[in-house]
Design a protein around this nucleic acid. Sequence first.
RNA 1: CGGGGUGUAGCGCAGCCCGGUAGCGCGCGUCGUUCGGGACGACGAGGCCGGAGGUUCGAAUCCUCUCACCCCGACCA
Length: 488
Amino acid sequence: MAKEITSREQDYSQWYIDIVQKANLADHSAVRGCMVIKPNGYAIWENMRDQLDRMFKDTGHVNAYFPLFIPKSFLSKEAQHVEGFAKECAVITHHRLMNDPNGGGVIVDPSAKLEEELIVRPTSETIIWDTYRTWINSYRDLPLLINQWANVVRWEMRTRLFLRTAEFLWQEGHTAHATKAEAEQETLTILDIYAKFAEEWMAMPVIKGIKTANERFAGAVETYCIEALMQDGKALQAGTSHFLGQNFAKAFDVKFSNENNEQEYVWATSWGVSTRLVGGLIMTHSDDDGLVLPPKLAPTQVVIVPIPKPAAEIDEAAEKLMRELKANGIRVKYDTDMKSRPGFKFAQHELVGVPIRLGIGSRDLANGQVEVARRDTKEKSNQPIDGIANYIIRLLDEIQQNLFDRSVKFRAEHTTEVDNFDDLKSVLDSKGGFVSAHWDGTTETELKIKELTKATIRCIPLDNESERGACVLTGKPSVQRVLFARAY
RNA sequence: CGGGGUGUAGCGCAGCCCGGUAGCGCGCGUCGUUCGGGACGACGAGGCCGGAGGUUCGAAUCCUCUCACCCCGACCA
């Protein structure tokens, strides 16, 4: 079997598809725009989910579950919100099937038309705020810090596995607060969690920023985001955290009595990350040999390959090694497959992104050593089998750190400051990446630039320094730079 | 929703122009030889050729109509 993955240089888009399919992460399903997440891909998502869930709970959030279906009328209660999602909603109109009297199989029973159509949730603000109305009466009921792990449906015209599918898995947090300041703080707390998760667990550096009015979530007062840079120079919005002000409280009449027994509308936030993160993870680290996974999220962190194949003395050594590694909390597998040869296994484990591979043959046993191969650099070395666990623990950390450092370096090399429109365009066309430039702050200019360059303002970085300058397009005064990029 | 493409074995494809009842590679099964970077041989299993009509003695192949999916754009996490 020859190498099957299209190189990134040749066709980045095809490379991505190859990785997803060859590493058995996901497949297209029988349903248009929907993917089947396969065990390898789902295991990564589970690791992401578990860690995020811990982080949410550590900051006082609890999980709940709200319905998949939303009455149509709910969606139209917040004007901007409807506008944002109306074009991509799946609508349920009937609740029963019947046999076609003409023998054409099963048809929709026309007598089972719903009084009010149901919308398959594209996000749950409306159903949740309708519910919160009944839950919140007093300031003592606040804050309400709820998250849900769910699937949502957005009827996309064009889909890409993990990055954009009609149905996807995510978490959506919906919180209610007594004060504006507290809600704003919540938005930022979550943004920090997202950034920390992306950088420390995914080893994917992100920029925390604020979205422009044009890119803001429909119904939000302010949208914060984390933006990552992929290897092809395109940006990926990896997570968003919204300060919703009192928009939904007003739309759904959610009021509470404050300490002075006065009625006030509550302040809200919502925030989410999705299986899109898996796509971001792939495009941040992987190479032409396949998937590269950060150890903290890798379903299998260490794989032991017997050379040339399982045999009594090798099995024994491998079992001992596994016990030692497992005792240290390391996720380890022993490849006992009898029918493929070592070379094939090496390639296979590299394809699916196992961070460390240990090779053990009789020669190694005689020398009291194992061969250690790391996925990120493809380096191999022989290490004494005694005390190998400590070595592996350190190496996993080192790989995690190396992936992050490498990505930070890449991003630094692909972040360019420009001061005129020609440079903006040529940088976007040549090396891509983030382009830092002055902008006059108007949606009109933003859209014009998008039209001319296909790049959008990814965000206004939170740690931006103020700097006087002139908008790259209009020359009007600007007080700070913003980040432009072509994006997924 | 526009443009392009593809539907034939689990996967990737050929066959279609010039109709005669389906083939190749990989994978799969059994056996043997191999085995420190993607092994080889022998034998074998596996397909109402996306669907529906039509033309014809005969359709994977020609005609009509459909359905699905993929890629590229516009829109979006």
